[in-house]
């Protein structure tokens, strides 16, 4: 075969392929086949209440732990929420893609998670994961909430620090405390899926309204079972203590109310 002709043929084939490949991808949503589909946003707000007082949990403020009778002055409090899903009234689920949020009490905007591109529908239940699913703990470099620049990834023992609580305490022999809680394997797995049915209310999502789900959590519960900072001021890796403290904190998550 004539070489030049051959090259020209390949050129033509390649041209056709590359022209085709320039078409824009359709929008990333689950309803490509339905052009009339509309979408809305949902906000999920987390408020943090200290112990039974119901008082707002604040950083850089001396708090008394009523069960342990210890003073705690938090400088850092952050944790991961991931994999938000909503159940439609027809029983099917919609899952947010790439659903990872770092709730950081020092950053007020991080306390309200915005879930975009939720298909217009009536929803009766929400599922959310406290922590980061095991897959993302073993999948190498990530971005956004999962970036290592958030200092929430253990460098020497791969995995996410799913809850980080740090501060000072006169009751600690070192004057400080630090709980770095995580673990995604076996008995040490702290990752927990939770759900709420909004107390029987319904979540109506459409383009003209952004309903807001209010959740609450109680950081004092970290020490519900484990020893206080007087005897154990540092937990820095996955293990039984991390599992217990994370589980107790995760158990404190409550649905409060829903704004339509």
């Amino acid at each position: 075969m004539n070489n030049k002709l051959y090259i020209a043929f390949i050129y033509a084939m390649v041209l056709m392929t590359s022209l085709n490949s320039c078409k824009k991808d359709p929008d990333n949503n689950n309803n490509n086949n339905n052009n009339s589909a509309t979408f809305g946003s949902v906000k999920v707000e987390f408020e943090h209440l200290w112990a039974m007082s119901g008082a707002e949990f604040k950083l850089n403020d001396t708090l008394l732990h009523p069960m342990k009778n210890e003073k705690m002055f938090f400088t850092t409090f952050k944790y991961y929420v991931s994999n938000i899903k909503f159940k439609k009234s027809d029983g099917t689920w919609w899952s947010q893609p790439e659903s990872y949020f770092l709730v950081d009490v020092s950053n007020p905007t991080s306390l309200i998670l915005t879930v975009n591109n939720v298909p217009t529908a009536t929803y009766t239940e929400m599922k959310y994961t406290l922590g980061v699913d095991s897959l993302r703990n073993v999948s190498g470099a990530q971005t956004g909430a999962l970036s290592t620049t958030n200092n929430m990834f253990w460098s020497w023992n791969s995995g996410y620090i799913m809850i980080k609580a740090e501060g000072k305490s006169p009751n600690s022999s070192t004057g400080d405390f630090a709980l770095h809680l995580g673990g995604f394997k076996g008995a040490n797995n702290v990752v927990t899926e939770k759900s709420t049915n909004f107390g029987g209310a319904t979540l109506n999502v459409n383009p003209s309204a952004t309903p807001q789900i209010h959740m609450s959590a109680n950081p004092a519960k970290l020490w519900h079972t484990i020893e206080g900072v007087t005897t154990k001021s540092k937990i820095m890796m996955p293990g039984a203590d991390a599992k217990q403290a994370a589980t107790d904190f995760y158990n404190s998550f409550n649905f409060e109310h829903l704004h339509p």
Binding site: V138, A141, S147, T148, N151, F153, S155, S158
Partner: peptide, 25 residues
């Protein structure tokens, strides 16, 4: 064997205070 992925492996020497002593940010 504490590190489970080649991509996140350099995080250890970069941030270890005995090695490169840096923070990612």
């Amino acid at each position: 064997g504490g590190i489970n992925h080649i991509e996140t492996m350099p995080l250890a020497p970069i941030t270890n205070h005995l090695e490169m002593n840096e923070n990612m940010m």
